[in-house]
Design a protein around this nucleic acid. Sequence first.
DNA 1: GTACCTGCAAATTGTTTGCCCCCAG
DNA 2: CTGGGGGCAAACAATTTGCAGGTAC
Lengths: 140, 140
Amino acid sequence: MKQSAPELLKKSGLKVTKQREAILDILLSSPAHLTAEDIYLDLKAKSLDFGLSTVYRTLSSLEEHRIVEKTGLPGDTGKQYYEIAHLGHRHHLVCVKCKRCIVLDECPVESFTAAVCKAHGFTLTGHSFEIFGVCPDCQN
Amino acid sequence: MKQSAPELLKKSGLKVTKQREAILDILLSSPAHLTAEDIYLDLKAKSLDFGLSTVYRTLSSLEEHRIVEKTGLPGDTGKQYYEIAHLGHRHHLVCVKCKRCIVLDECPVESFTAAVCKAHGFTLTGHSFEIFGVCPDCQN
DNA sequence: GTACCTGCAAATTGTTTGCCCCCAG
DNA sequence: CTGGGGGCAAACAATTTGCAGGTAC
């Protein structure tokens, strides 16, 4: 299931540049939910100092090609979060304090979502199921 | 369950002003998911031309008092959405094209969320369960 | 070689703040 | 009357865009 960054880029007809490769690598290796700035700082930490706009532009094209997904988190300060697209499936357990995020494998709602869509005449494109809580470390 | 705007304000120790009343009324009568600008324009349509900052400030205090919730939507352009707080419960069927939003009453995952939290040592604060699709009107 | 990509800086857009006047309690 | 609340404009923050030069293919 896991693909390498250059492969993914090539498959979508995008030119393979070290900027894109590095950005995609970060997203692939992160558990989840990164902001554009997170990525920018992460790059800096690796002494890869690209412009912030490159990060944004790369994220947009990756989003257009359905490689990553953009999302918002509840109660947050208006930043956008990016993560590798999982074909419309997101199941996370998120700590509301430290934003740590655990990926859930189970999906107990597949049949439910399909039924709801059918009932309302919608064409299902995906769903998001996120549980919010305070993780053990943040409970003091 | 449904309360009037002045009641809700008074109960939280907030002064009742026509601005707050009007903004809260809009939120109460909307099916869901409004941006600050939506509210601003809605007010204008009713010839209630308050400043945009009043809308934001009102929304913040309402949020502090747990009357409304702020949230982000997947794939969106970086705006914050506001809606009446349902104590951490959100179950929506959202059209990815027109953003129309249907509120779901059922919650098939109550016990599942509790179990997941327990398994990871988290203290549950809420969950979000949203289904995305294309509504009948947008299918052409 | 050409079209697409990057970098920088300036422009936009969404949201917050400061200051002063005003109204609800 | 008094303090929180509202209006306006300026500040801030996140993201986008225009343009000149570079680089993958």
